[in-house]
Design a protein around this nucleic acid. Structure first.
Lengths: 250, 250
DNA sequence: CGCTTAGTTGAGTTCGTTCAACGACTGTGG
DNA sequence: CCACAGTCGTTGAACGAACTCAACTAAGCG
């Protein structure tokens, strides 16, 4: 198992955050930016395949993903696992543990990840002093809810092929607007992850992905999925795509 | 189709809210209560089977359910429908439309429903003047997210019998702590609703419910489900139940 | 009285699962 | 350097869960 290395010593100042200039993020006022920079206590670098948060834990921290891929999941007693959603740069993780009580899901990384670290107890300060940021946090929570709604629709009502196409198109669109791809549109997941997200067995997932590959929509290689035709995937899934909204970045 | 009758004329003052005294809701300070009472602009009474909010709409309002049962759902182009979650007294509806932009799901009632009406544009006032209530709204959003996580796990990884047992146990527990049952523990849904929630066909849902009935866990009658053994259902599902947390009521 | 909605049941089919075996690749220890 | 185990992906065969189609009851309503 991989471990987490704390690098609290060094901290990218939020004013120089590499994510913030992306068109996908809304502009922050100088005041907001100053506060966020104070709110950020440090950075945490995590290896690929590491567990960041565990179900049941009372985390003292709250994180924003600065770089890398991960996923949230829950398991049944007997080990059956369901991936709930993927976490990518800009996503807040650990909010549940901070607000509702304890974490009801775990978070694991798919690639090396860098996290911005916040103190759980200082969240109230944010709510007291920066209502606009408070609304942003609610926005982020509402957005997550929206993604879960889509996933639920997908798992509940789409067949295997449509489901797989939707999932890959979804990850692809999210990655695109975060500028995560260079020329190779590569999503760092194993077929086991796909299976656990779609609620399918690994064998049938393999056969389904094969069909998408035959149609030249994707190509599977070295532990991951290369997207060849994002629009084609959306078409197979009957999925409209993500909206064009700008999002906040805490 | 049923219609909505506006009864803005009359409005239960929040200080006399019939829900608030329930042990499930956290106590509000006098200050908070006063604000919420100002925030509430009126009440809306809706018949059973009515559509409260439609996917795509830009609602000018935000609601809290004061009484009755309803559900949120999304559909695919070809009509396949997925019920995402159920709404019950205390639940906030229309938050997505208010914060993120437009509604991405619809809301329909299962019984006559009474809604507290708030103005979308006044939400910022709440965030500015009452940080504790702002946090409450985030709490509610995070809680909804948590329920969706559970549903996703259920649809993705439980079989038909477990799924049905989980769903009914879930609705039962939520209803119980809202004091929605008298002696008859009755949940006002049709088998079609159950099917659309579980992601199953109506025929198979019927056969599955039959099995639960054979085990004397439920009884089906006059458009609804009577719960005979909530604990038994939880056992079949392998579900721990909802926590014991107190929740806020906006 | 017919019309609609909700629920029931059986038969046959399809989609997805489980079991099982195998190849390619990676890292580890001798 | 090779042997070994471990992970990841692939494929075939048999099975089973859930689906579709279809027909039918019962209740509610105009």
């Amino acid at each position: 198992m991989a471990t987490a290395r704390a690098t609290h010593a060094y901290k990218t100042p939020c004013e120089l955050c590499p994510l913030r200039p992306l068109p996908h993020f809304r502009d922050f006022t100088r005041d907001e930016l100053e506060f966020v920079s104070w709110f950020k206590k440090g950075e945490l670098a995590v290896d690929a395949g590491a567990t960041v948060l565990v179900e049941g834990a009372h985390s003292a921290h709250l994180y924003t993903v600065l770089a890398g891929w991960g996923f949230r999941y829950k398991s049944l007693e007997d080990g059956r696992r369901q991936i709930l959603n993927y976490v990518m740069p800009g996503d807040l993780i650990g909010l549940q543990g901070t607000i509702v009580g304890e974490m009801q899901h775990s978070v694991e990384t798919l690639s090396p990840v860098v996290l911005c670290v916040f103190e759980r107890d200082e969240l109230m300060t944010l709510y007291n002093k920066h209502p606009s940021l408070a609304l942003d946090i609610t926005w982020i929570a509402a957005q997550e809810e929206r993604m879960l709604d889509e996933h639920l629709l997908s798992i509940g009502r789409r067949n295997a092929l449509e489901r797989a196409a939707y999932l890959i198109a979804f990850l692809f669109e999210r990655g695109k607007r975060l500028d995560l791809f260079n020329d190779r549109k590569f999503i760092p997941v194993t077929q086991q992850h796909i299976a656990d997200t779609l609620g399918l067995s690994i064998v049938h997932t393999n056969k389904t992905l094969k069909k998408l590959a035959e149609r030249k929509l994707i190509r599977w290689q070295e532990r991951g999925c290369e997207v060849l035709d994002g629009e084609g995937l959306k078409e197979v899934a009957g999925w409209e795509g993500l909206g064009e909204t700008k999002r906040p970045l805490i």
